[in-house]
Nucleic acid binder design. Structure first.
Length: 737
DNA sequence: TGTCTATGAATTTTT
DNA sequence: TTCATAGACA
């Protein structure tokens, strides 16, 4: 009779428990989205809660979109009143109203990773920090982690306690904050941090949102970081109707600040919390679940749960071993092609998952060669492409002249003959007067030693101002057209007349489509609105399920998705789990990789295939990896007979040249030519996994061998002295039998 | 100023 | 292998 009767008892309990804190531990495929949507319906239909008072937070736009759709279906009237959004967009929405409480303008811009990097780079230059010692990336991630833990620049500086490295980070952090503030910009972390700040410092604002969001639900709770936890706690502080759904086994974003203790300690934080476990899986076959369970069992420090299913046992896990990554890609593509051409499946029944984006290239080649439709998720985001960033920088400049980065990006793109020398003078002038870069450009007449270039600058400034004036009365699409025409951006690309340029033009066309779509969708389209939309989306959000293509993506991107047939490629120690986690020898990192493996396995509904390549080119040199430990953790009887993973040492032994495919033979030949001079061994008499003895370091296990062309680079984990990397010809390692 | 070349560096995952 | 940057030169 009612929609709730289709739920199992545990799910029903989760739906009906509406008051007070609730932790739902939902295993993979246990129908958590269903529970959430039904819970919302229950709140409205049975509890008479005003849709206006409900907030549902997800992690990705895609998840938010799906949730929105399903809620609309099930709730009907009033559903548009419910806030369904991601953490970031919810925060933006709040900040657009209250950012002025923090001294920001409400039309602040959002900096993405590239923008952040440029800021850092410039700061390093200014502070004379050698970016070879303090890498931009490292600085950024230090700042980001600090923000995630809500340590501001001041607090960070107080905590350096004489550590020189930390002192530098603190300096950069402080400058970084200043630059962003000056540019009226916030980075991703700021969106969260500043929202918490607004709520904390303004009782009336906090009160408003607490009253508004009487019922709060958070999806993928295992991936929340400390700020997000704070935010949620603040919002739920008054009514305490907080329902979080997550699976500690699927926490895979620790590197990004996700705090797994948010879920593990939920019961401590909210002592009256009700905990409900959803352990029945509706997605996968028993075999796939068994495999997933047997892998994840190796992790310590998890909430014990065992997924079960009423589904059939299903096919065995398929395992294939290949010579190299070309072979692997070729065979995988062939197999998919064969099954689809027999009419037994569609392309979009398939997903190929891998650990690193770099692996997609070879696969892509084979897909193109076989002309099979495919789609790569991730890698370089559409909005990170150069041409798109350039055009967006124009739009940003038109929208908000305070964004120095955007202005600097385009001042000489396309080339207008405004070079570094001139720029530096403008910057100097602007900084002395505490003006934005664009404002400084406007008064270029007053800047000393600008000379003839001043005219060029005026031309630029004038052009932007014309655009600004136009933007008042023309549509966004028209504005974009004008920008493309007036700047000569398209013309330049057309003249270049290369394939790459053609691709760029297509991307710009795509941007045009997006802007048109935005204008059609939105009731009151604005330039700021569009830019904001753009800032918070990623590739995976725009996937169209209706189209028939094979999906290629990293294991991370696959979270939350499901496919009938899943391939997990590159099941090699050193690739998955990644080399880094093996060398760092931090059990927690290995556990995170294992959870990633668990996520991958549980994406599959009907059949899972794992593949392994004996050798693989990684950044120009050939690696020989052992079979992934995760494959070995799956009980052998779950595998397809005859395709059982080989465990003998002989299998992973280094290949002789004759074993290489044609494509690689040439490489080996050149390697041999060089090897002749450097005395590189033709083949080593030990391999990954072997015990070896070194004259100085003693006994250890070989954990990696990289063919660097000139010589083999061998990584050994010595019992006494730990992990060392060395060249084979110098190390003179002896195999111990 | 812009373009070309050489050199070096890096590679895990991304809302 | 590929990208990015710095330096040399037109």
């Amino acid at each position: 009779m009612s929609i709730y009767e289709t739920l199992n008892p545990m799910q029903q309990e989760a739906v009906c428990h509406t008051e007070g804190p609730l932790l739902i531990l939902a295993g993979a495929g246990s129908g958590k989205t269903r529970v959430l949507t039904h819970r919302i319906a229950w709140l409205i239909d049975e509890k008479g809660v005003n849709p206006w008072n409900i907030l549902a937070i997800t992690f990705t736009n895609k998840a938010a979109g799906e949730m929105r759709e399903r809620v609309d279906d099930i709730v009907g009237f009033g559903s548009e009143q419910i806030w369904v959004s991601t953490f970031h967009s919810a925060c933006v929405r709040i900040l657009r109203r209250f950012a002025d409480h923090l001294g920001y303008e409400r039309n602040f811009v959002i900096y993405d990773t590239d923008d952040q990097k440029s800021v850092i780079k410039e700061i390093c230059k200014r502070l004379n920090i050698d970016t070879k010692i303090y890498k931009e990336r490292a600085l950024l991630s230090a700042i980001s982690s600090a923000k995630n833990e809500m340590i501001d620049a001041k607090a960070y500086a107080l905590n350096v306690s004489g550590d020189f490295g930390k002192q530098r980070i603190a300096d950069v952090y402080g400058e970084y904050e200043k630059v962003l503030y000056k540019n009226n910009a916030m980075d991703f972390d700021d969106l969260l941090v500043k929202t918490v700040e607004v709520l904390r410092n303004n009782e009336d604002v906090l009160n408003y949102y607490q009253e508004r969001f009487k019922y709060i639900m958070v999806d993928e709770y295992q991936d929340t970081n400390t700020v997000q936890f704070r935010l949620v706690s603040l919002l739920a502080g008054k009514y305490r109707n907080l329902c979080v759904v997550g699976d500690d086994d699927q926490s895979i974003y620790k590197f990004r600040g996700a705090n797994i203790y948010n879920i593990l300690n939920f019961e401590k934080e909210f002592s009256d919390a009700k905990v409900i476990k959803l352990e029945q899986n509706y997605r996968s076959t028993q075999t796939i679940l068994d495999a997933a369970n047997s892998v994840i069992r190796h992790n310590k420090g998890r909430k014990e749960k065992t997924l079960w299913t009423a589904n059939e046992v299903g096919d065995k896990i398929v395992f294939h071993q290949y010579q190299n990554e070309y072979d692997e890609a070729y065979q995988v593509v062939e197999e998919i092609s064969r099954v689809v051409s027999q009419g037994k499946a569609h392309y979009n029944d398939y997903a190929i998952l891998y650990r690193t984006n770099a692996q997609s290239r070879v696969l892509e080649e084979k897909f193109v060669a076989r002309s099979i439709p495919y789609k790569i998720v991730g890698g370089i985001n559409f909005y990170q492409r150069r041409e798109i960033k350039d055009i967006l920088a124009y739009l940003k400049t038109i929208d908000n002249g305070r964004d120095d980065l955007a202005v600097r990006r385009i001042i000489n793109v396309p080339k207008r003959g405004i070079g570094m020398t001139t720029l530096n003078r403008v910057i100097e002038y602007g900084e002395a007067r505490d003006m934005s870069f664009f404002d400084a450009l406007e008064c270029c007449d007053d800047i000393p030693r600008i000379g003839k270039t001043g005219e060029k600058i005026k031309g630029f400034v004038n052009m932007i101002e014309v655009f600004r004036a136009q933007s008042e009365y023309i549509t966004l699409a028209e504005l974009l057209t004008n920008v493309l025409e007036e700047t000569g951006y398209i013309k330049e690309l057309e003249e270049e007349d290369t394939e790459v340029a053609q691709g760029r033009i297509e991307n710009i066309d795509e941007l045009m489509n997006k802007i048109v779509a935005y204008e059609e969708e939105e009731e009151e389209p604005t330039l700021s609105g569009f830019l904001e939309n753009v800032a918070l989306v990623s590739d995976i959000d725009s996937l169209d399920e209706a189209e028939d293509y094979v999906m290629l993506m990293t294991l991370h991107s696959a979270k939350g998705l499901e496919f009938p047939y899943v391939y997990m490629c590159g099941m090699e120690d050193g690739l998955f789990p990644s080399y880094m986690t093996i060398v760092n020898d931090d059990p927690e990192e290995i556990e995170e990789e294992r959870r990633l493996c668990y996520v991958g396995i549980t994406r599959a509904k009907k059949r899972l295939t794992m593949t392994y390549a004996k050798s693989r080119m990684v950044r120009g040199s050939t690696q020989y990896n052992m079979l992934s430990r995760f494959v070995k953790e799956i009980s052998p009887e779950l595998f397809d007979l005859g395709a059982k993973p080989e465990k003998t040492k002989q299998e992973s032994r280094i290949q002789r040249p004759s074993d290489f495919s044609r494509k690689q033979t040439t490489k080996v030949a050149t390697a041999y030519g060089k090897a002749f001079q450097v005395n590189k061994a033709a083949a080593l008499d030990y391999t990954v996994g072997d015990m070896v003895r070194h004259i100085k370091f003693g006994v250890g296990t070989v954990i990696n061998i990289v063919d660097g062309g000139k010589d083999y680079e061998v990584t050994v984990d010595f019992e006494k002295s730990g992990v060392k990397k060395m060249f084979a010809s110098f190390a003179k390692l002896k195999l111990i039998d």
